[in-house]
């Protein structure tokens, strides 16, 4: 089966939604070709607004569209969607209680050759602190399409990370997803790996297989939504194991690792280890290089798990 480009899934899903809901709109800031929404423009030329290289204005325009009842999906690289326009998104969309769907593409190391200037390791942390905002990161094309639909159906602003390159499906077509709900991909008795996103969820599954050869039973949760976190699912599985390990394509501070740490400290104190970027800036490189450079791979998850378990 061909591995689809995530951006094509994003665009196709929006086109499908837009056919039956005239409120759906798309905004781009001169990255339409990167996001892949040109197909949307071909079909709905007046419903895609390209504002030029002006992300702050894009956020404001989206707020005005939302105040008039539209549902704008607006995208730019995740670094700009978060760091560059944080106040605009905070005030004009979230504080104003509007319905703007912000998409940050090229999360973390997937920024690749664009390097440190374009490599958002902080976007989830920034977004997670905004009251009421829903923050999610699909892990494959099936969850992406479902979460885009779920965001369209939900009134309120959202932030979604989008890895726009080809990603192999993890889920069967037709699997259902909800905002705020994770998926249990494997049950385990020794370690629970809670992973997020299209880079780290496959690595977590690989790590669980590798741990088996060491006689270690690993559970895996695909978090999918960082906020609100699926606390029930995580706690239910954490109670079965000795160690929880988080895995994210982001700083370990303020992202998934912090969210799970907060949950466990308050409700079920137990050993926790966090795999992710350890307080470093991004840099250029191939995906393989960057995964090794920042420890975002199955090997790191395995090593951290074994050390924590003493096995």
């Amino acid at each position: 089966m061909a591995v689809p480009e995530m951006r094509a899934v994003y665009a196709d899903t929006l086109i499908d939604l837009a056919r039956s809901d005239e409120r759906i709109m798309v905004l781009e800031a001169d990255l339409m070709r990167a996001t892949g929404t040109g197909a949307f423009k071909d079909i709905f030329p007046t419903r895609l607004i390209n504002v030029g290289v002006a992300e702050a204005n894009m956020i404001g325009v989206a707020s005005g569209l939302s105040a008039s009842g539209k549902i704008p999906f607006i995208a730019t690289f995740g670094c700009f969607a978060s760091r560059r326009v944080f106040d605009q998104f905070f005030i004009s969309c979230n504080y104003a209680r509007l319905n703007v769907k912000l998409v940050g593409t090229d999360p973390g190391i997937t920024a690749g050759f664009n390097g440190g200037t374009h490599m958002p390791f902080e976007d989830l942390g920034l977004m997670r602190i905004i009251p009421n905002l829903v923050v999610c990161e699909p892990s494959d094309p099936v969850s992406l399409a479902a979460l885009v639909r779920a965001q369209a159906a939900y009134y309120g602003s959202t932030y979604m990370r989008l890895h726009r390159k080809p990603v192999a499906p993890l889920y069967e077509a037709g699997t259902t997803f909800e905002l705020g709900k994770g998926k249990l991909l494997a049950e385990g008795n020794d370690v629970l790996i809670v992973a997020l996103g299209a880079v780290m969820v496959p690595e977590a599954l690989k790590a669980a297989e590798m741990l088996k050869s060491h006689g270690i039973s690993a559970g895996v949760i695909d978090a999918l939504t960082l906020k609100p976190l699926d606390e029930e699912l995580i706690l239910s599985q954490a109670r079965k194991v000795k160690v929880v390990v988080t895995a994210e394509n982001h700083q370990v501070n303020n992202g998934l690792g912090s969210a799970v740490a907060e949950l466990l400290c308050e409700q079920h104190p137990m050993p926790l280890r966090r795999v992710g970027v350890q307080g470093l800036f991004g840099e250029v490189g191939t995906p393989d290089y960057l995964q090794k450079r920042f420890g975002l791979d199955a090997e790191t998850i395995v090593n951290v798990s074994r050390t924590a378990l003493g096995r």
């Binding site: 702050a56 404001g60 707020s63 005005g64 569209l65 105040a67 605009q88 004009s92």
Partner: peptide, 27 residues
């Protein structure tokens, strides 16, 4: 806009209103 009847847009962080007006006008 959420608190006061008749207020069409939440403002206060300067520089954001004209963008919102563009969105209202496009809609």
């Amino acid at each position: 806009r959420n608190l006061t009847p008749g207020i069409d847009m939440t403002t206060g962080s300067l520089g954001q209103g004209l963008s919102a007006a563009c969105g209202l006008a496009i809609a």
